[in-house]
Design a protein around this nucleic acid. Structure first.
Lengths: 201, 201
DNA sequence: ACACGATCGCAAACATCACTGCGTTAACCA
DNA sequence: TGGTTAACGCAGTGATGTTTGCGATCGTGT
């Protein structure tokens, strides 16, 4: 009642932020270098130029650390486009996601987060993407009155193939391929004006 | 030229097979019990009633062990149906895969194999499924002369959503939902006789 | 049934990891 | 600008994981 927000107000100051960034960077590097090799706290700490104790205190286990890194990496990296139509939005967005998933380092991070982070890690990898999908579909629902695909179906048809190819087939799809996935979700003739390709105008 | 197959003929006799089975069973159990907890060789060995040395010698790392277990688990578990039509085959097969993926233990094993096994683990989880898909499509190609979807597209539309829901969304689809995925791959009116549901006749 | 050799169990040595106080640094606030 | 305290560095310790050499066991072919 006295102070505005007294409880649990952390101290995200300069040093903490610097250490957090260094550790995150170290994790990304190490996972990219040798995905199979078991990641341990001392190794990460050494690479980050930080003491292992610090890592143990901020992130209890390697799994939590990986989940945290994955959450940061897969949040805000892609922006929701606004082309004026759902088809155009989805096409550009799918192409962007495909481009992002084409980076081997990203794949290594996702696999590591899935393995060590379990349920937590899985959510870290897909949470933001599904939210973006929901935002685009919700916007379309407000725009038009006709039938709009559900978020679930959009995730099945778009994120399913995208993530499957990247993680399991280890052959990330091209942006063009990803763009065409939208035609599975939205049947009917393709309106040339609803293109997700970078307009040169 | 002298002996039939002299070189590198291992000794897959009774004891080796027994130990292999015990270790595999231990891995499945432990991964199912606590997916996030880091799996180590001593822990697996203790559960299997085998000495850690043996595990270290047969499988060099935990990653290789997990890949091996995943390969065994995801091979031969599902048989390729033969209903007489591609649509029927795929519908029943997709439903079977969905049923298999609904087991939390299977999900835990897949995540662990992805994390520790890397590329190897990923292939272990999808290899047999994609081969089955190719077999069904190849059979259809020999049966009819019309257009038949490619294996790649079938994997995108069927395995993509199936695996995505299981691994990332942690909400495995129902067999009925999986069955309907086939209608995305094979457009046109659904022939009632081409059903993948268990016929009660 | 016998001999050969691959595989396993065992124990010890070694390396690494995970955790715990305590002193020090530096971010936050008045 | 100075005090307060959360967060970090440090060193030591117990626990755990990994490797290696040797003797024993059990499958395999004759």
């Amino acid at each position: 009642m006295t102070a505005p927000e007294p409880v649990l107000a952390a101290r995200p100051g300069g040093r903490s932020a610097r250490i957090r960034a260094a550790v995150h960077r170290a994790v990304v590097q190490l996972v990219a270098e040798d995905p199979a090799d078991g990641l341990t706290v001392p190794i990460v700490a050494a690479r980050a130029g930080v003491h292992a104790t610090t890592v143990y205190r901020r992130w209890r286990t390697v799994g939590e650390l990986l989940s945290d890194v994955a959450t940061s990496r897969f949040s805000g990296e892609i922006v929701v486009p606004d082309t004026g139509s759902l088809r155009g939005d989805l096409r550009r967005w799918a192409a962007d996601v495909a481009t992002d998933l084409a980076d081997p380092d990203v794949l290594a991070l996702m696999r590591a987060a899935l393995g060590a982070g379990g349920q937590q890690g899985a959510c870290a990898c897909r949470g933001d993407r599904e939210r973006q999908l929901a935002a685009m579909i919700e916007r379309e629902r407000a725009r038009r009155s006709g039938p709009v695909p559900s978020v679930e179906r959009a995730a099945d048809v778009l994120l399913g193939p995208l993530y499957y190819r990247a993680i399991f087939a280890n052959a990330p799809g091209s942006p063009e391929w990803a763009r065409d996935l939208v035609d599975i979700l939205l049947p009917g003739p393709v309106d040339p004006t609803d293109d997700g390709a970078r307009s040169r105008a």
